[in-house]
Write a protein that binds this DNA or RNA. Structure first.
Lengths: 333, 333
DNA sequence: CTGAAAGCGCTTACAG
DNA sequence: CTGAAAGCGCTTACAG
């Protein structure tokens, strides 16, 4: 079907070896044959077959990314960081996403074998056994927001704990007395870390926790906001596990005829673009997701370029979070 | 390095052919040998080498996507649509993005050869010559928002023209008399289509066009908003080529002490999530970007599954746009 | 400088 | 049911 190196060799009246050398710029060809081969290759529109080439060179110039999703704010930023770094290294990206179960994720991971030089893994299904079973031994790998016991893999993750702590301390320092927390999806590890930090700070300050349910969606924030305003005594501040719930919560507070932050201060987590546009602007925690992606890819390329005798360290790096104080948590009167 | 089919064969005391047949479920193996081979494969943690397999099967179960970018609202949605459809077909995604020039895009495209079963192409660098030069002949391809003369390729694109026309007609029908337009980046084809439709409707209605510069960023919308409020006679409505500029423009109008829509109505294009949250909520044009991606992938798989004697038609489909009327363009008193 | 040959890891007719 | 062999399209020592 397609034109192969053999076609070029025949047409240029040389061996396939010479075509390969010429086109790859390895030298060892006279300027004359080089020119002829180039001309024939262009005329025939020869494009080398990637799979065949990487089968013999053991290089694919591709990195695989196993992700739970490909869209939404978070992944958009994550992919941006990965892509930025991949581009500077001349790497392509093989992505695989949306695995409903461990079996699907395993299939996806296995399909990457022989097609990537390294792997970026972010998966709720990934644990030590899963990776041992489905990851080719020796394939450079970096985990993103995916915690595994031991030091077998390099890992990067968001400092949820530090970020949430900053937020709760900010609210307490501002003078708020009854600080509520809106949870995210139960199985979400990021949320668990945020909630743990919330409890830790409240305990340190001898304050009483008030926890409301949520699922990361705006609607759940609205519902918890309704519950919040009906409480007695009413909380005077609420920290939602993400921005969208915080925004939903703000709507509920306003619909109840209360003011933000005078009656109830509201804070979120993520710093989505919208956070600056809601009114009042939302105080939140910013995580440089793109940095996480970029840094993960840099660590991965370091592993790929490793020599056996000088392995890159398998470290666990925390990407720090930053407090973005805005009008929604101005100190109470 | 890794364990290959040979290792499994040796360990299971069979030929590699039998290992292949057993593991691929092709039958022709006794239950006993099947079991033994499976056991050995699992014990050795054998994972087939993708490149080797696709070299012989001529199938990669991967589709390539050449995109100008991977992040931001638009691509997030586009990728979502592609990913959704790819998943139902069991396909992986090889993405390549951010090509600063035609040469870089060409390299990326060529690198896909032999590694994908089909190609989704969205590139400002793609014209007929570019594709002929860098696309393996016969490789199934669908163009997205990338217009080429002729019917060599299937193509899908956003109906910018129809969407912009709906908007300008909406403003005129609402009673606005002096409708301004804020442009996007000069080289952007989507913008050109939107602007052309703006001019067409104004001509039909015997209205005078008022065109202000912009570059898709919020700041440029703000600047054009400042220019707008200083005009005399002042336009009573403005249609920005995208939502972010519309939002910037709203800020400028408000900062000038004017009201929206009483003094100046504002409309955008894209329907970004934020559009519903600004105050007043922004009237805009919604394009189902995810549908574009999904539909493009469906067309591509149809081509891939084609038989030579029954080729899928190379059509050019327009993804329709929808008017989202909100408070920012309520009719003038 | 050039070519014949081996080999990357797999699958698939073809015999037995 | 099973294996030997050919071949997918390339690259790279090895000779000449």
């Amino acid at each position: 079907m397609g034109v192969t190196i053999k076609d070029v060799a025949r047409e240029a009246k040389v061996s396939v070896a010479s075509v390969s050398r010429a086109l790859n710029g390895h030298g060892g060809v006279t300027a004359e044959t080089l020119e002829r081969i180039r001309e024939v290759a262009a005329r025939l529109r020869y494009i080398p077959h990637g799979a065949a080439r990487s089968l013999i060179t053991r290089r694919t110039h591709t990195i695989g990314a196993l992700l739970p999703d490909l869209y939404g704010e978070f992944f958009s930023e994550l992919i941006r960081g990965i892509d930025l770094a991949a581009r500077t290294h001349g790497l392509q990206l093989l992505v695989s996403s949306s695995h409903d179960g461990a079996a699907e994720a395993a299939t996806a991971l296995r399909a990457m074998q022989g097609r990537v030089d390294g792997l970026l893994v972010m998966s709720p299904h990934a644990d030590a056994a899963f990776l041992r079973q489905n990851l080719p031994a020796g394939l450079p790998t970096v985990l993103m927001n995916t915690l595994i016991d031991g030091n077998d893999y390099a890992a990067l993750s968001v400092d949820n704990s530090g970020g949430a702590r900053l937020m709760v301390e900010h609210l307490a320092d501002a003078g708020y007395q009854r600080i509520a927390f809106i949870q995210g999806p139960a199985s979400n590890r990021d949320v668990a870390e945020r909630e743990r930090a919330y409890h830790a700070v409240l305990t340190e300050r001898a304050m009483v926790p008030i926890v409301l349910p949520g699922d990361f969606n705006e609607e759940s924030g609205y519902r918890s906001g309704q519950a919040l305003v009906a409480m007695s005594p009413r909380p005077d501040a609420v920290f939602a596990a993400n921005d969208m719930m915080a925004i939903g919560c703000m709507a509920a507070i306003r619909d109840a005829g209360l003011r933000i932050p005078e009656d109830i201060a509201v804070a979120g987590f993520d710093d989505v673009p919208m956070a600056r546009y809601v009114s009042p602007a939302l105080t939140t925690v910013r995580v440089r997701i793109a940095d996480l992606g970029r840094e993960a890819l840099e660590q991965l390329t370091a592993q790929i370029d490793d020599h056996e005798d000088n392995p890159a360290p398998r470290t666990h790096v925390r990407v720090s979070a930053e407090l973005m104080v805005r009008a929604s948590t101005a100190p109470p009167r």
